[in-house]
Design a protein around this nucleic acid. Structure first.
Length: 108
DNA sequence: CCACTGACGAGTG
DNA sequence: GCACTCGCCAGTG
């Protein structure tokens, strides 16, 4: 599922779990990522915590910087608090910008 | 079996 | 925003 996240878009741990058919198991996603021996083969930086938080810091302070750097390079916007602007970049229904429906969905 | 631990999430004060 | 609590569940000792 993580490999399917488009460039410039992000998904929360919960989103990934849900799309993988395991709703409510966000923790498992993080756990698997942390244990995966070959994480370099997938866009792990596009996976963020609920609300757009970059929770990778706990795993590795260095990884936290790498994640933000890669996301910014893909054109992802951040809020003042250093969180991803999910309204614009979240992978899903609310990610289709420009339409009224999308704006409404983004607010909801 | 029990206790503890997470790259988590939602709710409350 | 911060500090907690509770729910979650596979893995570990």
């Amino acid at each position: 599922m993580i490999r399917r996240i488009p460039l410039g878009r992000v998904a929360t741990y919960g989103d990934v779990a849900g799309r993988a058919g395991l709703p409510g198991r966000a923790r498992l996603v993080g756990k698997v990522l942390g244990m995966s021996p070959d994480v370099s083969s997938l866009p792990w930086h596009r996976v963020v915590g609920a609300g757009g938080v970059l929770s990778v810091g706990r795993y590795s302070a260095h990884a936290g910087q790498t994640q933000r750097m890669r996301l910014e390079r893909e054109g992802v916007r951040f809020t003042r608090g250093g969180r991803v602007d999910l309204a614009r970049h979240r992978w899903g229904p609310a990610s289709a910008r420009g339409t009224r429906a999308a704006s409404r969905a983004a607010r909801a």
